[in-house]
């Protein structure tokens, strides 16, 4: 009996230690947050919808018993930053300006991927005003949602046309309220995303869009991971990067364009407008979904931060070279054999 006890307890202790060590390697759940699309089952991000459509998270993590939680935030960047600050999310995929605002505001995270770039904005004006160019917006009431990519994009377009925010009367309305105000005639123009029902109804005209704007000045999507999570689970972080790169590889291929557009339509967008968002203008589909956090990505973020500081949108500078962590993307690209796929 005593011999048996001498064997049992050390064995049991070793077993418990092994199980605990194994459990520490993996979290029980990985929590993601993204701005929501119009339809509640979909995110605003095309790659996230590809991931969910192809069950890529489940395929990667189900075998380890890791649960995936996804939150689709109606309040976009501000809501995502609030959740990150409260420790509710491990990863977030959202617009570059909101990411910069969060980082400048003290969020401890790392920027590990750029799921897509070349995001577009569209300036609509009331049809009755006959506004034909951005320069005609001088003195007009122009709405864009502050704290989102629409703000920086609006300011960049104004700057490119010799105007500043002081040359217009800025109105801060979110998407739905802005369109209602434009239809009601109480504002003159709206800076918004690609879906344009008021144009179809004859109430607004398209004044300008950024599809041929310099790509470096159009908005990017960014994937951030909280510092805590990245330090505790570097392998899981790499595997998350791998999933996003798998989705980017699929989305970057011309032969999948129609399926990608159909996914955009499912988020609530009209087909004819969704079609105009994939691989058009001066950006190819392949480059649009180049997820590498490379020097081009770093330079674009540096440009955005400089622009934000100059326009007093943020007060704190960010060391982008320290903030961007390429290690996860590099490891994932190597594992997938895609190191040279997006190389120029």
């Amino acid at each position: 009996m005593k011999k048996w006890l001498k064997v049992f307890f050390p064995t049991a202790a070793l077993l418990i230690m092994a199980i605990s060590a194994q459990a520490a390697e993996h979290p029980r759940v990985i929590r993601f947050a993204y701005p929501a699309a119009t339809n509640p089952d979909y995110a605003g991000s095309p790659l996230v919808n590809v991931i969910n459509n192809q069950n890529l998270f489940e395929k990667e993590f189900a075998k380890d018993g890791i649960k995936i939680e996804q939150s689709f935030i109606k309040t976009a960047g501000p809501g995502t930053n609030e959740g990150l600050a409260a420790g509710l999310f491990d990863f977030a995929d959202y617009g570059d300006f909101a990411i910069v605002l969060g980082k400048a505001g003290g969020l401890k995270n790392r920027l590990i991927l750029s799921p897509s770039k070349g995001g577009n904005v569209y300036i609509l004006a009331r049809a009755s005003l006959h506004i034909n160019s951005v320069k005609d917006l001088r003195g007009k009431k122009v709405s864009y949602w502050k704290g989102t990519v629409l703000q920086t994009q609006a300011l960049r377009v104004l700057e490119a046309n010799g105007l500043t925010e002081k040359d217009i009367r800025q109105i801060n309305l979110n998407g739905a309220d802005a369109l209602a105000a434009l239809a009601a005639g109480t504002i003159d123009a709206v800076v918004g995303s690609y879906d344009r029902p008021l144009v179809d109804q004859g109430l607004a005209t398209l004044v300008y869009d950024t599809r041929n704007f310099p790509v470096s000045k159009r908005y990017r999507e960014g994937l951030v991971v909280s510092e805590d999570f990245a330090q505790k689970y570097p392998d899981i972080t790499k595997r998350v990067a791998k999933v996003f790169i798998q989705a980017a590889y699929w989305a970057s291929q011309e032969k999948n364009k129609e399926q990608l557009i159909q996914l955009l339509v499912k988020t609530g967008a009209k087909y004819k407008y969704a079609k105009g968002e994939i691989g058009v203008g001066n950006l190819s589909q392949k480059d649009q979904f180049d997820p590498r956090p490379d020097h081009e990505n770093t330079n674009d973020y540096k440009g955005l931060i400089d622009f934000s500081l100059k326009n007093k949108l943020i007060r704190t500078n960010i060391d982008v070279d320290k903030w961007v962590d390429k290690s996860y993307a590099d490891a994932a690209l190597k594992e997938l054999g895609l190191q040279n796929y997006w190389a120029k």
Binding site: N53, Q54, N55, Q246, Y249, W250, K255, N256, Q259, Q262
Partner: peptide, 26 residues
């Protein structure tokens, strides 16, 4: 109808969508 197109997706299993896109029907 949305017909299937062969892709080099690293995912071996088909999408959870219904019928994939057919280029001719589209």
């Amino acid at each position: 109808k949305v017909a299937t197109t062969e892709t080099e997706s690293v995912s071996a299993e088909p999408s959870k969508d219904e019928a994939p896109l057919d280029a001719e029907d589209g």
